[in-house]
Each structure stands twice: as C-alpha cells, then as structure tokens.
Nucleic acid binder design. Structure first.
Lengths: 334, 334
DNA sequence: CTGAAAGCGCTAACAG
DNA sequence: CTGTTAGCGCTTTCAG
C-alpha cells in the first residue's frame, strides 16, 4: 500500500538507487535528475520506511530509556531532556518503566536490544547481580547510567555532584548558626544518597557543630521522610535543622513537623535535594540543592550519540554536573 | 557480529525456515528437531532481530505516544498506564513531547509513521488545521485521542467524563450551602475544560444559588489560577466557593487566597479537577474530581491494539471513563 | 514435517 | 553521474 522507492523510481524514470541517493543528498546526483526525483516523490507523497533502512544500515535511530517510574517528577524531567536531545539528532526514544525490579529491567534491556536500539539510558544498575551486569557490559551498544558512582562500572555515567551538594547543604546550615543538625537519608545501598550523606558529614567536620550529626536511614520517599521525621522529633528534640537526602523526603519531613505543631523554619530549618518543581510551590518554599535534571538527560543522550557511531566499544565517559543551593524560605538564621 | 537465524540453522543442521518456525512455535515442527533448534539457539545465545522481523511482517510492535510534556504529572500518569498496557502485549512505546506545537506534532507523527508504528496515541488535535487533520485521518494506522470530544473527529477517543465531573463539583458545593460560586476555567478552546464548565453550569441551574455563577477564563496552569483568583478576590468579594477547571489552577488559587490573608476552607472553599498526586499533599489537602489517568492510558492502548490487527481501518471507538469526587479538606459547609 | 526460494524496502559497493 | 547487483535477517508461500 505505501509508496516505495521503486514507485518513485518508476515515476521519475530512473533507477531506484538513484532515487535513494537523490533523496538523501549524499552522493553527487545531477541537478536535473534530482529535481525530477524530488518532484515525483513529492507528488506520490513518498515516505521512507525507516524499518527497511534500519535493516540495511544496521542503525535504528532509536534510543532506549529505562527509568524506574516516569511518574517520578525527577525522571520526567530527565526524560524530557533526553527526548529533546534525541529528537534534535533525529533519534527517538522508547520509554520503559522498570519499577527498579531487576528482572523487569533485564527484560526491557533484551527487548530493546532485539529492536536494535543504538544506545541505552538507564538508572543505576546497582541492584543487578554480577552476571546481569556482565550481560549488559557485553551487549554491544553504548550504555549510560544515571546516578551511578562514576568509574565503578564499565559503563558511562551522568550524575549530579552529590558529594558537593551534601557539603553545600551542611555548610549552609552551619553557616546559619545551627549546631545540632540531622540528616535524613535513604537506604544505605542508594549510592547517590550515600554520596550526599558523605558530603554532608564532611561539611559537619569542618563546622563548629557541638554534637555529632544525627543520621537517620529510611525510605527515600515522602512517606519515608514523614516517618523518619517523627522518629527524629521524638528522639532528638535538640535538633534545629535537618538536611533531607531528597525533596520527597523533605516534603514528608515538613509535613511531620507541622503536624507535630511546630513550624518551619521558626522551630526547625529544612533543606532538600533535587529542586523539584514542587519545591517552589509548597509552603514554606523549600530551600534545596538544585540538580540539573534536564541537562543530565541531555548530557546522557549526547554521550550515547557520540558513542553510537563507533563500532568498537568506546571508553566510558563520566559527567558529573554541578549542583547549587537554591535559597527559599525553609531555613532561618539561628 | 550478532548471531542470526542462519547461524542457528547451521548449528542445528536444519533449514533456516525450520528454525524460524521452531522458535516461534507457530507451525508443526517435529518435537525432536524443535528440541535441537532450541538448544542450539540457547547455546549460541540467539536474539531475534526485531527490525528484520518488522520488515518482513509489516508490524513493528511499537506504539507512538505524543503528549504535550511528559513533565506534566497528568501525562506522566497516562503514559505509565499506556506503557504498562503496551508492555503486557509485547509492544513498546516511543515517547514524544510536542509542547502543543502543531508543527512539532506533525513532525512527530510523520517520523513515527516512517518508523511504521502500529498505532498512535496523542492528546487532542484541536489545534491542528483541517489539512493536517486530514493527513492524520488518512495515515493508515489507528489513532486514539486523549481528552478530545468524542465523535467530533474521525478518531477514537478516550476521555474522562468532564461534564459529569463539572456537575459533581457544582452540586457538591451547592450541597454544602454555598450560594455564590465561581468557576476558574481555561481558554475557551480547551474542549475538556469547556465541558467541565458546562457540567458545572448545569449543576448551578439545578441548585438554589442566589447569584449567577462567575466564570473566569485564563491559562489553565498554576500561574493562571493564581492570576484568575486575584482578579476574583478583587472583583467578586461575595464568592464563598470556587471550582477550578483543574488541580493546577486550584493550587494557584489556594496560593492567591492565602497570600491575600484569607484562608481555605474557612473563608473560601475550593475544589479542583484531576486529582494529581500533589492534591493530597498540599495544605490544605484538596477536594477534587478524580480522573482515572492511568486507566485512560491503558484503555487507549487497548483500543490501539485491538485495531492494529485489522488492515481495514476500524470504526472509531469512544471511551468515556467515570470520574468521582474525592473529598478532602479544602471545602467547608456554610 | 521440512527445505527452497522469493520477497519486505532500503543501502552500498561496484561497474560503467 | 547512474545503473546493477547483492545483501540486511526474517517470514512465508510453495513444493516435496
């Protein structure tokens, strides 16, 4: 049904391969024949079949994006950056939600490879076991990992500067005069949250804090933040400031603080991490570490595109993007 | 480099077409030969090339999803529902962000068609001109539209019951004893917001309201809600309740109300529409009309899948999914 | 039940 | 500059 190269060739009285060349404008083709071809293609409303082209060239002009859940605004932002960059280069991206389930993750990877994607963008693969990681490493297409510790794996990585961010948050709070500061982190296996904690602790060492900082671990979610904070209020009444490992935790923390009849920032200062859109909207507006999510998606795709050309697996690239503190109204000077 | 059907055929001593049949389990193949083939495939770690298969069969097992912006939590939720349903059926979905720009939208459509997607899921095409809509209608793959008025176009549609939702909101507020109620809507061209307004007005007619309801139009965003509400507070001081066309507008409204030194729900009740996750988190928790976003994505994909089989264009299907009022704490009885 | 062979629509040498 | 000719890897008649 759809019109093919052969149809255009027939209509313009030249050979099919001439049509191919004329349409793509690679080789020299006589101006007049090219003209004829273009007209015929236009008239017949010719649309190249990218599947066929993909088979012939071995490149699908498609990238795979595996995130845990696109409903997480963090990943939505990354996805948008990735999609824009891909689109600009003529690529498109197929979206997969893994829910952080290793099996689901591998199923998607295999499926994408069968589709011959030219590159794979996924969040950290820390939850994959050795053989699975091996399989990935040897799959033949470039892979870039989001929020993975650079250099640990054989893959390229793009991440925000978590250590610097943690340090920034800690130093800011200390600079405001706080002396008893708590940190609400995620589960210990979350590499990026661990890095934020590390940075924070480093800042604490350099600061005139009176007590060793309290660090609480839990789920890195709104709910988790809520629960950690209830525990905190209960057990550590002297704390005057808290640094949350991410904004979701911070939102939960604020909720818990308000519910306990105390107020932010009068009684307790809080700073988050990520700078989700919501951070500016919530009351009080949240002071937080901005992570360039859109740019991270973008950077990841650019790496992929750069490496997709080479048939030899290229050396992994590692980008760590700068973060900055966005001051709003959830902290006060002591 | 990758192993092909021919490799497996060679390794198992049968013809390539036998391998093809054995692997897919369509036709009868002797159990023993099938066994041999499967073993060889396993041993060589054979992975079918879906591009090649797509070229041969004419089906790509891929769906296109065009939304205005995946960062909009509404679409993220729809996308997730769509992706889950697609995945379940062995399809995958490529994500496109159109920013509601008609040109971008058409570019994506063409690109997806070149890729031979088996179906297209996109938000309303109201902003496309006639020829563009024609092009879509004749493109040869099933299309389902989100939030488009059912039956107006030649396409299938999936939408929430906007009229019922608007009516629900209006009746609820009236039932609470409010007599002067305002509605904050979007631009007039937004068909779904217009439908919500219609439902609301209908409820107002049936209610013992004293004044004709105030309807304000503006941007259907947080910012828009903020601005409409400032105008409202300024010009219509007697209003005691407002129905916002969507949650984003409602959030902006609440913000404006609080900033004006008044409180929700003590001074002013507000109800939203959509039931974004955020609605439960914000203070005060927002009473709103729940729209089954995940299910809408799912339903849309199911239509697509059903129609993708038939070579003849199937008759458009229209699903309007029920909505319900979720009562939280942003409204009070008068 | 299995093999041979003809494509799917396009690209890419290789000749002219 | 243009035509010929092989494929890309898989499915699908059509014979056997």
């Amino acid at each position: 049904m759809p019109v093919t190269l052969a149809d255009v060739a027939r209509a313009s009285g030249v050979n099919i391969s001439t049509v191919s060349r004329a349409l793509r404008g690679t080789y020299g083709v006589h101006r007049r024949t090219r003209q004829r071809v273009l007209e015929a293609a236009e008239r017949l409303n010719y649309r190249p079949n990218r599947v066929a082209r993909g088979l012939a060239t071995g490149r699908s002009l498609t990238l795979g994006l595996i995130v845990s859940d696109i409903r997480n605004p963090y990943f939505a932002e990354v996805a948008r950056g990735a999609e824009d960059a891909a689109c600009r280069a003529g690529y498109d991206v197929v979206l997969c939600n893994s829910d952080l389930d290793p099996l689901k993750q591998m199923r998607y990877v295999r499926s994408l490879l069968e589709k011959r994607v030219d590159g794979l963008l996924m969040n950290s693969v820390a939850d994959l076991d050795r053989p699975q990681q091996q399989e990935l490493a040897g799959c033949g297409v470039p892979i870039v990992l989001l929020n993975a510790t650079p250099g640990v794996q054989a893959f390229s990585t793009v991440t925000g500067d978590n250590v610097a961010g943690g340090r920034l948050a800690g130093a800011y709070l200390a600079g405001l005069g706080h002396r008893v500061i708590a940190h609400l982190s995620g589960t210990r296996r979350q590499a990026n949250l661990a890095a934020r904690a590390r940075g924070f602790l480093k800042a604490m060492q350099a600061a005139p804090v009176t007590a060793a900082p309290v660090v609480i671990h839990g789920e890195h979610t709104y709910q988790g933040g809520y629960e950690m904070t209830r525990k905190l209020l209960d057990r550590h009444p002297k704390v005057t400031a808290v640094f949350a490992g991410n904004d979701a935790i911070a939102f939960g923390a604020i909720r818990a603080i308000l519910e306990a009849g105390r107020s932010v920032p009068e009684d307790l200062s809080v700073v988050g991490f990520d700078n989700l859109e919501l951070a500016a909207i919530i009351r009080p507006p949240l002071t937080t570490i901005h992570q360039p999510k859109y740019e991270m998606g973008q950077a990841a795709v650019e790496i992929l595109l750069r490496q997709a050309g080479h048939s030899e697996p290229s050396a992994p690239e590692h980008h760590v993007l700068g973060v900055e503190l966005v001051e709003r109204q959830s902290c006060r000077r002591l």
